[in-house]
């Protein structure tokens, strides 16, 4: 068996903020009726997180739930447990009109932390990232320069960015360039 590796093998950069590739993360994309009690029970029991409000992320010790769109969730789990969790969710969704797929190896995850984290993201996305507008727990799908991305803000002030694995290198270069030392804009 081959050993799974993340897109950039934990690459990191340090400037006005630290940019780190987070490594392997288990991710399941789920499409379905988010108001359905059966679907809610399946995902909350698999992750231990509560159902997220629109535009929010709900995290637990072992996973999390990200609100992607009115009919889509991104389920975060440990990488080693993806297949088991997927089977558990599918069992809970029996009879529902829903689709759950393991997308862990199709994605890359980055963490941007430090004082300049808001600045780094602010340079790349058309999103108001001021401390009043973007608060911890908020989840946003958007565009970072030329690629689609999604990110959420943790309680500790660090951003977690999810993008397609095929653009992981582009994303890392982008974040590193935006995080060059002495490149503070001073907006946030």
């Amino acid at each position: 068996m081959s050993d799974p590796v993340s897109a950039l093998n934990g690459a990191s950069f340090s400037g006005i903020a630290s940019v780190d590739e987070s490594g392997l993360a288990g991710m399941i994309t789920l499409r379905g009726d988010l108001a359905s009690p059966k679907l809610q029970a399946a995902v909350t029991s698999a992750t231990g997180a509560t159902m997220p409000e629109p535009g929010k992320v709900a995290l637990s010790v072992d996973g999390g739930l990200c609100w992607m769109s009115p009919d889509e969730l991104l389920v975060l789990v440990h990488y080693a447990e993806v297949e088991a969790k997927l089977a558990e969710i599918n069992a809970g969704l029996a009879g529902e009109h829903a689709l759950a797929v393991n997308v862990s190896d199709a994605r890359a995850v980055f963490q941007v932390s430090g004082d300049g984290a808001r600045e780094v993201l602010g340079k790349l996305c058309p999103v108001d990232l001021s401390a009043q507008a973007f608060v911890p727990g908020q989840f946003r799908r958007t565009r970072m320069a030329q690629v689609a991305a999604a990110f959420w803000l943790d309680q500790d002030g660090s951003f977690h960015i999810v993008c397609f694995r095929s653009v992981a290198d582009y994303m890392f270069c982008l974040l590193s360039t935006a995080a060059q030392s002495q490149s503070e804009v001073g907006v946030y």
Binding site: P54, G55, S69, P126, D128, R140, R141, R143
Partner: peptide, 11 residues
């Protein structure tokens, strides 16, 4: 109107 995000044109 679906996700409530105030999206700029490039998004």
């Amino acid at each position: 109107p679906y996700c409530g995000v105030k999206a700029e044109e490039t998004e």
